[in-house]
Design a protein around this nucleic acid. Sequence first.
DNA 1: GCCGTTTTCGGCCCGACTGTTTTCAGTCG
Length: 582
Amino acid sequence: MTKNEIAEILEEIGVLLELKGENPFKIRAYGSGARVLESLESDEFEQLVADGKLDSVKGIGAALAQKIGELHETGALGFYDKLKASIAPGLVEMLEVPGLGAKKIKAIHEKLGIDTMEGLAAACVDGRVAELSGFGAKSAAKIAEGIKNREAYGKRHLWWLANEVAQPIVAGLRERPEVKRAEAAGSLRRGMETVGDLDFIVASDEPAPVMTWFCELPEVKEVTARGETKSSVRFESGLQADLRIVPPGQFVFALHHFTGSKDHNVAMRQRALERGLSLSEWGLVPADGEGTAKEKAERGESKEVADEAGLFKALDMTFVPPALREGLGEIEAAEAGELPQLIEVGDLRGAFHNHTTASDGRNTLAEMVTAAEALGWDYLGIADHSKASFQANGLDEERLLKQVEEIRALNESGRFKTHVFAGSEVDILTDGRLDFADEVMAQLDYVVASVHNAFAQDEDTMTKRIIRAVENPQVTMLGHATGRLLLRREPYKVNLAKVIDAAIANDTIIELNASPWRLDLDWRLWRKAAERGLLCAINPDAHECDGLQHVRAGVSAARKGWLQPKHVLNTWTLEQVKARFS
DNA sequence: GCCGTTTTCGGCCCGACTGTTTTCAGTCG
């Protein structure tokens, strides 16, 4: 069993233990164990298992190491099977209903004997739920509504689309006279590829009108909670948004707290406690003394900080960019002053892997170059599909070579400041051969090799297929390494550790496909791969002019992968890229 | 279940809001 499959099971065990009413810290241990596992590279993981040293990894102790080992070796775990058999799947499903947690589900199950969603819906209607102690008519109605909408409510949302909703709201908040500062926090601010909901943090001494403005936004479908300092609303799309309004002096602490991640916050609080301080959204206050953190903050006992850099400094750390706050070593690096200077959108001088109307793009070559020039880019790579992608109107040799001529002529015409590289997104055929002969590809500036069919191949076949392409000297870079479509399609089965090894050995680039639906190769793999010498290209995979903007999503993911400008081909100068491609 | 150089036991981050309660448990982040 692979490490990611094992991580999923650990995650599930955590959920099942929750429904059993287990110790919350034990539950957390399974969840964080799963995340630690996901962050390990496959070969590193294999080595640790082989050496019996899994428990040397922080967050994995003897018990988890034993269970992981068993799953890895046998593909099964008695403890997990028994646990799973003891809990009806309907109870697990109920956790998706807003307002229902483990304790309430347990009560519903034990007192009413209900273990399916249908049974629960019926009991909400006929009044049985409302009669339970701790429940009432309102809870029953809320649960019934939640069941009806659980598909829309439960799902996550693409970072890109959530950001498009969030930014106008931040701008609107900042325009209000009562608002001193406003930011979107949460996983959106950390740049996670998908987000569950939006979190807005506002500094104001006069919260009431701001709260009213927010709850009455035209796109709000439902106000699910409304208090003096916090409200929650739900939009038509099912996306939920929280607004928290705090006094200006507490803004930085609230922003940090609600940016998370949970793992990062836990580590930060522990760090504060080691210094005799208590960190919360209210402030950084002495751990001892009378009252709650909130009361201490209100008495003015909190350290004062102007911005998040000041907060980190108070804990003897350098500023940790939100992208890195995942509890994956950023605390230690910030303490040692060893955080990387992360890549920024402004570092990009161009991008590769873009399409035109010659294959399945919506804009012509000239229109795409115009758009690139408007972005101030020094170069733009065109890589239309090859003939095997007939569904995408892929180019055959004749059309390809004609396009190359067209590009060369455009460069010579001096019409654009932006230089155009002539490339192709060449299909990797099912056996790893490429869709064009070497002598055809040799006439191009560069080649992106991508898999577009036979996704169902077994891992070994797919891995060999991709490695064969990566080893081809004509291949400049590997396109969307796993073929995943976020929230829509699972990645195909491939041993990425072996692919990364082959790419490093053959000096082949792997792209970070910046399409918000792909973000592939995943950010979790980049840190170690780049440290080992893998070069990245942030490729928008644009199918229209606006698509070039997707590099922003790519940079956001690259930052989460600790990438610096030097790790990314598109930060190179035109001359450097030309030299690389020659 | 994890962790640790004041600890191998006893901690483990902290607060807002809701709905059901008459002081708080559950949920959520």
